[in-house]
Amino acid sequence: MTAILAVRDLHVAIGRRGHAANVLRGASVDVEPGEVRGLVGESGAGKSMLGRAILGLLPANAVITAGTIAFEGRDLLAMPEPERRKLLGRRIALIPQDPMTSLNPVRRVGAQIAAVLSHHLGLSKRQARARAGELLAEVAIREPGRVLDLYPHEISGGMRQRVLIAMAFACNPSLIIADEPTTALDVTVQRQVLQLVERLRQSHGAAILFVTHDLGVVAKICRTMTVLHAGRVLEDGMTADVLARPRHPYTRALLAATPRADRPAEALRPVPPALIESLWSEAHRLDRLADAGLPS
């Protein structure tokens, strides 16, 4: 099967020339059609940057210094802006991290969903509103007709995340970037949202790149996973294999640091500082090699 998304050797640096810090150091990730891939790493690993690079949402002071991002065989980075905009929101969608800040506070929920539908699918105002109501029903929001006319501050955080999920699936995308979509939610709401995303993925047939630091979530819903650290891919494979037989010492350390129901809390061990240090010094060695123009 050919990958729907192929990120190859992606390098991203942040900051001005001379003071730039590398956040991605040759990361490569594949997502196959319909699969859910977990992108795992600690804070600062570059996992969110990778997601943002795919969506063209890198911060203004970040530059892609090398690499390609191919979506359905076409390089997003080489594509003219208007063409990429036709893909974003329609073929590639985002489920953002924070439902509290990701909806426009002064526009009604229905209008925000309808805007995506009329922008990409050319639906009329009335059609878009009707379809927005159907989408809300699909994400298990009761009284969708009433919720359409509410402002974001009038609904709960869990409901806002459902609205954002409805918007992500609105145009039947083939790839969804889920950027830690459950991090900002209560644990009880988290489970419902994960089940919802999984159900919609199956009915809409989208692939998901699931960015998270939560190995528990990965174990539950991701078929494949990629472990990222300091902007490098350390390990990559079927989730079941990686979790059962981690090859990289960092993955092993991460697993040992993850709470599990079948294990006493005392068995939790933090990732050894020496390991983190050696990973960073390896990353900086690669930076120096790259600066000197040598292949790593």
Partner: peptide, 14 residues
């Protein structure tokens, strides 16, 4: 710079 404006860019709006 707020999230809702950034997210709107990811939806393909100019």
């Amino acid at each position: 710079d707020q999230d809702y404006a950034q997210v709107a860019r990811a939806r393909g709006f100019s």
